[in-house]
């Protein structure tokens, strides 16, 4: 996730340069066939960030070992215990794998589609990463590094739902999600324990909390936003946050477990 995220940011300034070169003002009305979209340009002089930590309060639930015994090839492919990923509490009660995104406050701004590819790999009979964020229309590549066939099935409701078989050594699949949707549950039609979730947004301001529960959303234009979190078992939360010009807002979330 971190890898993808950093790549996403790398391509943003580049995209801005291109947009910046088109100095002529965009036509006032877009042609219906191919609308000339003017993309929002973040001013680096005033861009700020919001960061914080997501904490799990109470006793962290013990992570269960995934029983892959119904497919011996998966047991062999995983090499060691496969741990269930639905609630992962790290050091100092940090909650990992929470999807964090700007839910509102960016209305009216169009963001260019990143060209960086987000990779979802099926390895050791699990999806990697487990929580995935992409922008609308961003290229998504699905790979299978296992010696077994998988059948990835994003159970989308707003986007097109599909499933597709991928055997060992098969070439990557190239897909994209064309509409905003939070979150799309993903399963493997063959291996019932395999789960992932994809958040599709029409802007680049999203991330996934790290092992220590921390997150940062950078390069934000100043403004007031609703910041939302999504956790597959523990649900969603929202908070208002104001990012001053060049400011570094801090905001924390707590998910309560059983005490």
């Amino acid at each position: 996730m971190t890898r993808f995220y950093s790549r996403l940011w790398l391509c943003l300034p580049f995209a801005l340069v291109i947009t910046g070169c088109k100095s002529s003002p965009p036509p006032p009305t877009a042609a219906p066939a191919k609308p000339a979209v003017s993309y929002f340009k973040v001013d680096p002089a005033t861009a700020g960030s919001v960061s914080g930590k997501i904490t799990f309060s109470g006793r962290p639930p013990a992570r269960k070992v995934i029983d892959m015994s119904e497919d011996p090839a998966c047991v062999a492919a995983h090499k060691g215990k496969a741990m269930e990923e639905s609630i992962i509490v790290g050091n100092k009660s940090g909650l990992e794998n929470v999807f964090v995104y700007i839910k509102s406050g960016l209305e009216g701004k169009n963001f260019e589609t990143p060209t960086a590819t987000v990779v979802i790999n099926q390895g050791g009979c699990q999806f990697h990463p487990h929580i995935i964020g992409v922008q609308v229309d961003q290229p998504v590549e699905i790979t299978n590094s296992d010696p077994v066939t998988h059948n990835i099935h994003p159970m989308a409701e707003i986007n097109r739902e599909w499933n597709h078989s991928q055997g060992p050594g098969d070439p990557p699949m190239h897909r994209k999600f064309v509409k905003q949707e939070i979150m799309i549950p993903v399963k493997c039609n063959i291996h019932s324990w395999m789960h992932a979730y994809i958040g599709v947004l029409n802007h680049p301001y999203f991330t996934v909390s790290k092992e220590d529960g921390s997150f940062t959303i950078a390069n934000l234009p100043p403004g007031t936003y609703t910041l939302a979190t999504w956790q597959e078992k523990l649900g969603t939360q929202e908070q208002q946050v104001t990012v001053a010009p060049g400011g570094q807002a801090v905001i924390n979330f707590t998910y309560k477990g059983r005490s």
């Binding site: 066939t149 059948n151 739902e161 597709h164 055997g167 060992p168 039609n189």
Partner: peptide, 14 residues
């Protein structure tokens, strides 16, 4: 044949 059987087990390609 393993791939064929797995293909069906996963409901093929939608």
């Amino acid at each position: 044949l393993e791939q064929v059987v797995s293909f069906y087990a996963g409901q093929g390609n939608s």
